[in-house]
Design a protein around this nucleic acid. Structure first.
Length: 258
DNA sequence: AACGCTCGCAACCGCCATTGC
DNA sequence: TGCAATGGCGGTTGCGAGCGT
């Protein structure tokens, strides 16, 4: 069980002591097979990796993982995701941590349905920029590129279906049909957008898919990691975070000190 | 109640640009 | 200047909920 500790205090200082950024580590995600295309809770090997590095977890995030990630992001800031993933003890890749934070945990996120205004904006921006989702997302505060992308896919699917229907109708009816029928679809509010007030409501934190293994494991390790967290807090609160990063940067000059 | 279908969304993958040694 | 690490981005997948039959 000791090897499965959710937070490794010693590794924190070991890593802080050396370079948090550029470890001579092989890329985690490259070259991994596409077999694991699943959201199921699963442990899956990374290709390569440091000596003794644990396999990165995949699948849905648990509440504990979320809490841990939030805690460490607040501590270290929204940067150096790979480092954060290492020191947090989360058995996730930096990419995964970043994604989770950006798409789900970020405090500025607006939950709820896309409003009619937002939809109009998305449509116009998409017409202008195409599938530049992150760019579009920047124009919609509180919305993520993933969210907009998903919305657009659904929207376009609907649109495609409706246009198919219209085309069928046209084909079956006389050729002299009315002309304005198709255009109303693109820029009007979708049926879903009518309840625009829903956007402001705080979505309940999902507690969904915590597997039995996870629960048992987390229960066993939570208290221990809490203690360790407290120690880290003590360490980190004693130092200004900029100071901390400066220290880390300075330590990078002596990578083999540890 | 059981089944199948659709939708919404979280999370993954691979590619690529950037950064730093 | 080249290479490796990292992060950002767009595309894709699969699960679960909701709904109709």
């Amino acid at each position: 069980l000791a090897t499965q500790t959710t937070f490794s205090f010693s590794s924190f200082f070991r890593v802080v002591g050396r370079s948090p950024g550029r470890s001579r580590r092989r890329r985690l995600q490259r070259g991994s097979s596409s077999v694991h295309r699943t959201n199921r809770p699963a442990m899956c090997n990374n290709s390569g990796g440091r000596g003794g590095a644990m396999a990165a977890r995949k699948g849905p995030w648990t509440e504990n993982e979320d809490a841990q990630l939030v805690w460490f992001v607040r501590l270290l800031g929204e940067r150096r995701w790979d480092f954060l993933a290492q020191v947090s003890g989360l058995r996730r890749t930096g990419k995964s941590c970043r994604l989770r934070w950006v798409n789900y945990l970020h405090p500025g996120l607006k939950r709820g349905r896309i409003t009619a205004d937002e939809e109009r904006l998305i449509l116009s921006l998409h017409a202008e920029w195409g599938s530049r989702w992150s760019r579009i997302a920047r124009k919609l505060p509180g919305r993520t590129d993933n969210e907009i992308k998903n919305y657009w896919r659904t929207h376009m699917r609907k649109k495609a279906q409706e246009e198919k229907m219209l085309a069928k109708k046209k084909a079956s009816s006389s050729p002299s049909s009315s002309s304005s029928s198709t255009t109303s679809l693109t820029c009007s509010a979708s049926p879903t957008a009518t309840s625009s007030s829903a956007a402001t409501t705080e979505a309940p934190q999902e507690s969904t898919t915590t597997s039995m293994d996870d629960e048992a494991e987390q229960e066993a390790t939570t208290s221990a990691s809490e203690e360790k967290k407290a120690e880290v807090v003590q360490y980190c609160s004693a130092v200004d975070m900029d100071q901390l990063w400066n220290d880390i940067a300075a330590s990078e000059s002596y990578p083999e000190m540890m």
